[in-house]
Design a protein around this nucleic acid. Structure first.
Lengths: 335, 335
DNA sequence: TTGTATGCGTTATCAC
DNA sequence: GTGATAACGCATACAA
């Protein structure tokens, strides 16, 4: 006798309905089948509360309708948003999502990729920081924000254009002497183009500028030193600051207030990402908004695209500027 | 001839190593095997870059080392945190996590549960709002913040104690006349105990109090009306407010400032959850801190526990009070 | 059209 | 200790 409490199988349904195994399979998969049979089978399915075992299914078809998302964590609002929208994009296509938080750990990233491949996921979307990840040719992979080689499409915001836009906006808002503040991975990735774009924009608009570039390990206090050095008689020499992320902008905002500078009256700040306080309406600061829903959609689209041939190596999605209270908008005043 | 580009199987490894299939299986599973054999097999595994197919494994063992997390979204900081820590707790036990964002949609919640069962996950952890979810007896389920029946353990903060603690703290901080503001699901769940705990605390400490309870659909503006009604000659009659979540506290904070009230000088505010601004150090407001890592750990522990018998119906984890700038702490001043 | 038989990659049970 | 063989639940080519 078999296990009594185990889930019903197709065989059970077939027996219940008095038909052959193959017939049940066809009904389940929506293949043409005699009407009286289909009814009896469906009744049996209802009665036994049968559900297909997708592991057996995956074993046969070597297609699992599952994709993995590699992301450092879900707590950073940007990552959280990416996670949410990718989940939705996958759901829309009837795919399940395996979440893999890597905590910025290269080894975990690699382990997760191995795991995902074992698990025979149909593909992986990754926002990673490991410069030499080993990815099987087999497994479709789409990278966010970092180019990882010819066969791996990378999806990102148009970071260069975003940097440029920030410079232009600051110029439009009356700034003359600006600064760029960055902290983050020294790894070559798309967001690093924000700097170049900003420089480009400054040059085009005749803004004088300085840069302060910190790497991941560096202390945030170096920004404080940097800014203090540029304060003469209580007055900051910069009238505009572009920060590489909203997070940095937020910290700088607090820092400037501590140093007695008024934002946006004395100095205007533009961040990058488009984070809002509580998933609600208000932005943390004036910012270059990343089109996260579009990024998510594009990642999933590329991942599930059948013909690998047409996969573009880099897709840059357009960004927009949104005021968020740390700039002096000519017309509207933000909260 | 078989598919050439498909992943290597145990059979391939066996052929490569010149041993039998079963031997390979034993090596992979760490069962005792002759040393020379094990070496040859391991070399073959290396050479072919073999990985076990966990779908075939799951088919045999009907154990998949996968759990599903049902959660409305990952964007709300509380949900994001829960997601992260549950992911970590599962990872620690070598389990994978299927993420299922439900968007507060009852139908999606049910669909996901069905899906998870099809997918033969080993268990489901759910933070749900559907009062009559159908869950197979088969599938282990642990609920967060909502009791769902005798066989389903529920893990939550000690919400009652948290409410009480809030009242006591406000009393300690010198408040005399306080208010409780709540908006949220009208569904009976654990967080609703915050109100009762608060009432209890107020009574114990001789605080006079009022309550304003809104349901999910209600407009937030009703809080504005409520507060305005309690302002006489520019002065708010409450000197302390307990908000059901940090999110509400945050909104109320902004509202009060708009109404010309100073926080914390005129009125002190305590929230609930323990959200911080950017995953960093600072809290949004003074708050009752939920032990999210402990909640996650407990959920996973209960889910994977073998003997169902000992599963407690409700586990309440202790909360703590943390100052966050919206209260007048006797000693330390917050940021 | 319906039913039957085979195999997907593993694991477990046995003789050897 | 080793190696053939039978399941696990499903899909499908093929025979009826």
């Amino acid at each position: 006798m078999k296990k009594e409490n185990s889930a019903p199988t197709m065989k059970d349904v077939a027996k219940e309905a008095g038909v052959a195994l193959g017939t049940v399979s066809k009904v389940v998969n929506g293949l043409p089948v005699g009407e009286p049979y289909r009814i009896r089978v469906e009744e049996a399915i209802q009665k036994l509360n049968y559900q297909v075992n997708s592991y057996a299914q995956g074993l046969k078809a070597s297609k699992t309708y599952t994709a993995a998302l590699l992301i450092p964590n879900t707590q950073d609002p940007f990552f959280a948003s990416i996670t949410y929208y990718i989940n939705m994009a996958l759901l829309k296509r009837n795919y399940r999502m395996l979440l893999c938080c890597t905590d910025f750990d290269s080894n975990q990233e690699q382990e997760y990729i191995t795991m995902a491949q074992q698990n025979k996921v149909d593909g992986i979307i990754g926002l990673t920081y490991n410069p030499n990840l080993k990815i099987e040719e087999q497994t479709p992979f789409v990278s966010i924000d970092r180019s990882m080689g010819a066969n791996i499409p990378c999806v990102a915001s148009d970071n260069f254009a975003g940097g440029q836009l920030a410079a232009e906006k600051l110029a439009d808002l009356g700034c003359k002497n600006v600064a760029f503040l960055r902290i983050g991975s020294s790894l070559s990735n798309e967001p690093n183009k924000r700097k170049s774009g900003f420089e480009n924009g400054c040059l085009a608009r005749g803004l004088t500028y300085e840069m302060k570039i910190l790497n991941d390990g560096d202390s945030f206090e170096e920004f404080e030193h940097f800014l203090k050095e540029h304060i003469q008689e209580g007055k900051l020499s910069f009238d505009g600051i572009f920060c590489v992320t909203d997070r940095v902008a937020w910290s700088v905002l607090k820092l400037l207030r501590k140093l007695g500078q008024k934002v946006p009256e004395d100095v205007q700040i533009i961040g990058f990402d488009g984070i809002h306080a509580f998933g609600g309406e208000n932005y943390i600061c004036s910012t270059i908004l990343q089109p996260i829903p579009d990024i998510a959609e594009m990642c999933v689209e590329l991942l599930l695209q059948e013909n690998m041939m047409s996969k573009p190596p880099l897709v840059c999605l357009p960004v927009t500027y949104v005021p968020g209270g740390t700039t002096l908008e000519p017309f509207a005043e933000q909260e």
